[in-house]
Amino acid sequence: MPVPIVQLDQVHRSYRMGDEMVYALRGVSFEIAAGEYVAIMGPSGCGKSTLLNLLGCLDRPSSGTYRLAGDDVSSMDDDALSTIRGTRLGFIFQSYNLIQQLTVLENIEVPLFYQGREEGESREIAQRLAARVGLGHRLGHKPMELSGGQQQRVAIARALANDPRLILADEATGNLDSTSGREILALFDELVAQGRTLIMVTHDPAVGERAHRIIRLRDGLLETDQRR
C-alpha cells in the first residue's frame, strides 16, 4: 500500500493568550491518501485554519506528529519547512494574498524565484500557468486591476508553479460571487483529475459537496470523517 500523503497522529495545537491557554486542536488523527479531494468543515473557531496551517507546514504542532509523504515534518527546522512549502505544497487563500506591487506574471513567478529557477524558464512556466487559468492576456496587470475571481485564478496558477502534489485552500471561494466561485471549483476539479491531492477548508455545504471526503471538526476535535 502506498504511503499516505498526509498522516496526522494525535496532533495538538494550543495558543497562549495572556494567562489562558486556547486549545485550537486537541488530538486530531487522520490520513489522506495521494489524489484525494478533501473538504474540512465545521463551525467558526473549531480549528480549521489552524489545521490547515499545520498541514501547510506554516506552523508546527504543539504535540503529536505530522508526516508529509512519510517525512516527519514536526521535527524539521525552519529552512527545511520553507523548502517543503516551496516545492511540495501550494497555497490558495481566501483573500488571494497576491503581492500588490507585482504583476500577474511576477506573482506567479515568486515560488519559482525562491527555488532558484532560471529567469527564462520561470517566465515560461508562469506564462503557461497563466494561460491555463485563463489569464494569458493579463500578464502585465497588477492585482488591483483584476476582479476577485481573476485574482484567485492568479493565486491558483501561483500555487501550481512548482508543480506541488498537495494543494491547500482556505475558504478559496469565500470572497467570490457564485459565478467566480464555480470557475474556481472547476479548476479544483481539474487539479484533482490530474492526480493532485487537494485539501480545502470551507463552511459552505455546497462547496463541500464537491469534495470526495468531508472531515468535520468541532472544538478542536475530529467529529466526522465521511467518504462519498
Binding site: 501547510g56 506554516l58 525552519d78 529552512d79 520553507s82 523548502t83 512549502r85 516551496g86 516545492t87 497555497f91 494574498n97 497576491l98 503581492i99 500588490q100 515568486v110 515560488p111 525562491y114 527555488q115 501561483r158 512548482n162
Partner: peptide, 14 residues
C-alpha cells in the same frame, strides 16, 4: 503580509 506570503511560497528567513 507580503512577508507572510513570501514565506508561504517558500522564502527562507535568509
Amino acid at each position: 503580509r507580503e512577508i507572510g506570503i513570501r514565506r508561504a511560497l517558500g522564502a527562507k528567513r535568509q
